[in-house]
Amino acid sequence: MRSPRTRGRSGRPLSLLLALLCALRAKVCGASGQFELEILSMQNVNGELQNGNCCGGARNPGDRKCTRDECDTYFKVCLKEYQSRVTAGGPCSFGSGSTPVIGGNTFNLKASRGNDRNRIVLPFSFAWPRSYTLLVEAWDSSNDTVQPDSIIEKASHSGMINPSRQWQTLKQNTGVAHFEYQIRVTCDDYYYGFGCNKFCRPRDDFFGHYACDQNGNKTCMEGWMGPECNRAICRQGCSPKHGSCKLPGDCRCQYGWQGLYCDKCIPHPGCVHGICNEPWQCLCETNWGGQLCDKDLNYCGTHQPCLNGGTCSNTGPDKYQCSCPEGYSGPNCEIA
């Protein structure tokens, strides 16, 4: 077999650049994923090309098998939009790539799955459409700058595939050579959905506090709520009108309100015997008056200043008058 000629994957630097851009600016990249293909086995019993010639040398006159050299087999892949009637021409609109030389006439790579040499990765940054057309071609490398490479066999497949970690196996069982391969579509990290176009990256910072479920939905951490999980859940009972919080379990009062639940107004400074319904009010309790509710309107009842059976009459805020019984006098009937 001729010395292998290595063929790198098509578009790999571009895919790395796209992945970097997506990581830095995830909101700009609407989708991100990759179409993967792995060659599993190849069977070319006679070492022939599609045109019937030998990959190298002439045929044995007896059994008609190619004798001089085995094929240097590598694969090309073209991925494009779905076609009900597949045409070989036209651009590979979803991507293209190739393997290096991975074997001779016949080989089996099932035991070495995950080997990069027999895998082609086609990254995409558009919403995966699920339906596709795939062209797979086996080629013989001439290892010659003058002699062109020659095609051994080709296969085409049109179908639908959803993103999954599971592989789907396909076979080419007609023509001079048979080969088996597997395909799958996977979303990149933080991308979800059938189109790999739903973005969700767990975070716990100013912009949100959430994890992501298997469908890419945000699940808020304990103590947080809202579409972006950036609204803290305040202390139970915290007034929704007069209290708020920036951290879970907190209850910060608005100006003019106080209390554990921010449901108590702050009265006017200096208010003595008054209450409030709104901040800075001083609504006097019964029998109290004045701007600060510090004037006693029922001095008689509060202090009972009249002595010796005198009768007390309220005459104004903090004022009274005693009517003394016979034989007593003085402001409080204290003089006998």
Rank of each mutant, 00 (worst) to 15 (best):
K319Q: 08
G57S: 12
S244T: 02
G289C: 08
H268Q: 10
T73K: 05
Y299H: 04
G216C: 03
I102S: 06
Q182E: 05
N215T: 06
I335S: 14
E278Q: 06
F75V: 14
C55W: 01
F35L: 02
A177V: 12
T169P: 10
L247P: 09
S158P: 03
P317S: 14
P100A: 03
L37W: 09
C282W: 00
C238F: 06
R64P: 15
C66Y: 11
L283H: 04
L260Q: 09
W288L: 09
Q254H: 06
F206Y: 03
L20P: 02
C200R: 07
K319E: 13
C300Y: 01
T99A: 02
C282G: 00
I120N: 01
A88V: 12
R12H: 13
S141C: 10
P269S: 07
L40M: 11
G208R: 04
R9P: 05
Y320H: 06
S131F: 02
Q168P: 01
C251W: 11
T106S: 08
L247H: 03
A26P: 03
E153A: 10
P91H: 10
Q236H: 07
N197I: 08
V185M: 06
G195D: 07
Q172H: 07
N105I: 06
N46S: 02
G249A: 06
G57V: 14
N217S: 14
C312W: 00
D140E: 06
P4T: 15
G330V: 14
N215H: 08
W139S: 00
G243R: 07
C78G: 02
L79R: 00
C271S: 00
L135H: 02
A127T: 09
S112G: 06
L24P: 05
G97E: 07
C293F: 00
G104C: 04
A88T: 11
G52E: 10
C71G: 15
I266F: 11
T186N: 04
N215Y: 05
P91A: 13
S3C: 15
T286S: 07
A58V: 09
N46T: 03
G301V: 00
N217T: 13
N308S: 09
R201G: 12
P279L: 02
G259S: 03
A127S: 04
Q291K: 11
Q147R: 03
S150I: 13
Y192H: 12
K171R: 13
L49M: 04
C238W: 13
A19G: 04
T6K: 15
R12L: 15
T73S: 05
Q236E: 14
K171E: 12
V176G: 10
F179Y: 07
G103V: 12
V28A: 01
M42V: 01
D296E: 00
V146A: 11
W139G: 02
N162K: 06
N314K: 00
M221R: 11
N143S: 11
S323C: 02
Y190N: 04
S3F: 15
D63V: 12
G104V: 05
G330R: 06
Y132F: 05
C22F: 13
K218T: 13
T73I: 14
E137A: 12
C284F: 00
P240S: 03
G8A: 01
C300S: 00
E326K: 09
P129S: 12
G90V: 15
F94L: 11
P269A: 03
C22Y: 12
N51D: 06
L37V: 06
G95V: 00
W167G: 00
M225L: 11
G226D: 07
P163R: 03
G104R: 05
T6S: 14
P331R: 11
P91S: 14
G309W: 13
S313I: 15
Q168L: 05
V86F: 13
H268L: 05
D250Y: 04
H209Y: 03
P248A: 12
P123T: 02
G8D: 14
D205N: 09
V101D: 01
P267L: 07
K295E: 11
S244P: 10
L307I: 09
F107L: 07
F126C: 11
P61L: 13
L260M: 08
L21F: 10
L21P: 00
E70Q: 14
D213G: 06
T145S: 12
W128L: 12
R9Q: 13
S131A: 02
P305Q: 08
H242Y: 05
Q321H: 07
H303D: 10
Y74D: 02
F194I: 04
H303R: 12
Q254E: 13
I152S: 04
G290C: 02
G310A: 07
S323F: 15
S32A: 02
C78W: 00
N143T: 13
K198E: 11
Y299C: 11
F75I: 04
I335F: 14
G114R: 14
S131P: 13
D140N: 04
P248Q: 06
G47W: 12
H242R: 14
P279R: 08
S3A: 14
S41Y: 04
L247R: 14
N44S: 03
F35Y: 01
N308T: 10
C293W: 00
I275F: 00
C55S: 03
R165G: 14
D72E: 13
T286N: 01
S84T: 02
L307V: 07
D213E: 00
N44H: 04
V101I: 06
A31G: 02
G243E: 03
C293Y: 00
N118K: 07
P325S: 15
D188A: 12
H242P: 05
N51K: 03
D116E: 05
P163H: 01
K241R: 13
R184G: 01
V185L: 08
N108H: 14
T133K: 00
N173S: 12
A155G: 08
G290R: 02
